[in-house]
């Protein structure tokens, strides 16, 4: 008993949640709403069967520890259709991570963060990532997706923690909506090409952030990775150094042929890289700010 307690305490402190209950996802959805009725039997997919539903797109969710999903359709008078999916991502950190792939602007109309389109609402809350989409684009359906999203938001009573690694990234110059959280090497090049190989040993024990800084004309990118141990961070740094340095006397700094700078360092169990900085000073300053945040917060 005490053993389990300590595991749970460790996971909470490390920014993860141990959610062992298997919730009934259908309880989060209305049977009918403003004249729209559930049309057919719900479909459920797990890691094995998700490919049958969204083919190769399933890998995105699996890369975030996907647990299962419910898919439900609503119809009005047998014509217009609305598709709803609730993905149970196992914990809030994974739900947040999947959501960061679609975020184009900061919005909290629904859940703990939402992305709104004319005919679609995507949001995350607690351990869930939710998609509500009008399939025919009718005005009625566009109104109803808001009602459904609101219903689901209200049905999820809990909220979830954000990844701990988020606390290390500086706010100054940050493009908030660009923050991408991940723990699978497939997403390392999402903002800027870094490597085709997993030179930083990213896996589900690491927490990674990519983010844009500055304005479009003076863009730089920050990569922050938290490892389980300092030794892991050292190994990753050394591998990165072998690839990114051509000068033995200049560890942690590279001038690219397009005139931009790359700066990188390890601090405690963190690796940080700044890419495409317009000056050496800018690159170093962003790194230093990141280190200062770790030290000041005792992370």
């Amino acid at each position: 008993m005490f053993y389990l307690y300590f595991i749970q305490l460790f996971l909470i402190l490390s920014g993860q949640q141990m959610d062992t209950k298997e919730p009934d996802l259908s309880q989060l959805l209305p049977l009918s709403i403003t004249g729209w009725e559930k049309t057919e039997n719900d479909s459920y997919y797990n890691e094995e069967s998700l490919f049958n539903y969204i083919n190769g797109g399933a890998e995105l969710y699996i890369s975030y520890g996907f647990n299962n999903v419910i898919s439900r359709r609503y119809s009005r008078n047998g014509n217009s259709q609305i598709a709803v999916e609730i993905f149970d991502m196992g914990n809030s950190i994974n739900a947040y991570g999947v959501f960061t792939h679609v975020r184009e602007e900061m919005d909290e109309s629904y859940g703990q963060g939402s992305q709104l389109y004319e005919d679609a609402i995507l949001f995350w809350k607690y351990r869930y990532y939710v998609s509500v989409v009008s399939l025919d684009g009718s005005e009625d359906a566009q109104l109803t997706i808001k009602n459904i999203a609101e219903y689901i938001d209200d049905s999820i009573s809990e909220t979830g923690e954000l990844p701990g690694v988020l606390r290390v990234i500086p706010e100054r110059g940050l493009v908030d909506e660009s923050v991408l959280y991940f723990h699978h090497p497939a997403w390392i090049n999402s903002l800027y090409y870094i490597s085709d190989e997993n030179i930083l040993n990213i896996d589900n024990q690491t927490g990674c952030i990519l983010a844009r800084y500055g304005d479009k004309k003076d863009r730089s990118y920050l990569l922050a990775i938290r490892y389980s141990t300092i030794e892991d961070a050292k190994r990753a740094f050394n591998q990165f150094y072998k690839v990114f340095s051509e000068e033995k006397d200049s560890p942690g700094l590279s001038l690219m042929e397009d005139g931009t700078w790359i700066a990188y360092t390890r601090h405690h169990r963190y690796f940080f890289g700044v890419f495409h900085a317009s000056s050496e000073i800018l690159a170093k300053d962003l790194l230093q700010e990141t280190i200062d945040r770790i030290d000041s917060q005792g992370l």
Binding site: E85, V102, L122
Partner: peptide, 10 residues
Amino acid sequence: GVGPHHYNKK
């Protein structure tokens, strides 16, 4: 592409 359907006309 966005969301599980990976589609938005936008």
